[in-house]
């Protein structure tokens, strides 16, 4: 049985189509990522799955229960960490945790094993009010509260947004530990580099799923050979390459520029010749393996958006 099944879900707000006919499933024990920018429809999907929002059409089940008919069953079986910090700011760390345990008819002690590793990091601040915690600490407390009733499925809506690299890395280590305990995890993030840490991902933009697969497969499906170039004056190189009629796509990527060419049989020798024509100091050209972000850009471009032109 799948842990989560989403079939043709549509959700509109007035004229805005937030979720357009989205379908996917998440296997039991899987770490599944919804990867996409703000406004992609991630939060609406989470709210439908946690029974907080009714979809216009389509169906969805969590642990075999229907999100409309069986919402009470679902609420006992899922943990939800919304994008906005939603604990009680003027209760202490311990009070928040006890409160959520009590609401779900359990105690901190009963499921302590599950939260031990995470809770120990915030335990020194037990008597501090949640509103006075740092960003990383709040995040850990929220995760503990979402876990305290030992849910079958954990929904995490952008848990790492606005969090620095160190806390992000720690958070993903915690998720991997939870996964080992058999909990199904659905997590959303706008950071493409986090996609590779999931078992499978859905790339989502403008309410539409552009691709669903394992991160490896998504990368393998990249249809072109991808090249990278850099030079001392990288902005000039970017402009020059974009003017080149053989280019298909061309965009900044970290210290390099990533590009594909129209020809299907492009090899590195030929590409180097094209790049060298522009006469740049410190020019370096190489073939690279695409990342999830390259794939996301590719899919966005295929759907009609232009990267070279900043006009609509």
């Amino acid at each position: 049985m799948n842990s989560v099944e989403v079939i043709n879900i549509v959700k509109t707000y007035g004229e805005v189509k937030a979720v357009k006919n989205v379908s996917f499933e998440v296997a039991k024990g899987e770490l599944f990522g919804l990867i996409g920018p703000d406004g992609a429809g991630k939060t609406s999907l989470f709210r439908v799955l946690t029974t907080l929002l009714l979809a216009d059409s389509g169906t969805a089940t969590v642990e075999g229960f229907d999100v409309v008919k069986d919402y009470r069953e679902i609420r006992n079986r899922v943990g939800y960490m919304p994008g906005r910090f939603s604990l009680y700011q003027d209760l202490t760390v311990e009070e928040n945790l006890s409160f959520f345990a009590t609401v779900f008819g359990t105690t901190i002690r009963e499921n302590y094993d599950l939260i031990k590793d995470i809770y120990e990091q915030i335990a020194p601040f037990n008597s501090r009010r949640a509103g006075k915690l740092s960003g990383g600490m709040k995040q850990k407390l929220a995760l503990c509260c979402a876990l305290i009733h030992k849910p079958d499925v954990l929904f995490l809506d952008e848990p790492t947004t606005g969090v620095d690299v160190v806390s992000r890395r720690e958070f993903w280590e915690m998720l991997n530990k939870l996964k080992k305990q058999g909990i199904t995890i659905v997590v959303s993030t706008p950071y493409m580099d986090e996609a590779s840490l999931c078992d499978r991902i859905a790339l989502i933009q403008d309410g539409t799923v552009m691709s669903i697969n394992s991160p490896d497969r998504i990368v393998k499906n990249f249809p072109k050979t991808l090249f990278a170039a850099k030079a001392n004056n990288i902005y000039k190189l970017l402009q020059d390459l974009r003017r080149n009629s053989e280019m298909e796509s061309c965009y900044a990527f970290g210290e390099y520029i990533h590009f594909t060419v129209k020809a299907d049989d492009a090899d590195i020798v030929r590409i180097s010749q094209i790049a060298e024509r522009e006469n740049h100091d410190g020019l370096e050209v190489k073939q690279v393996i695409p990342g999830i972000e390259d794939c996301f850009i590719r899919l966005t471009l295929d759907s009609g958006q232009k990267i070279m032109d900043r006009k609509k």
């Binding site: 996409g36 703000d38 992609a40 947004t161 706008p190 996301f296 850009i297 958006q305 990267i307």
Partner: peptide, 10 residues
């Protein structure tokens, strides 16, 4: 923050 990869590059 939160902007899609293509717009981020623009």
């Amino acid at each position: 923050g939160g902007v899609d990869p293509v717009t981020r590059r623009q």
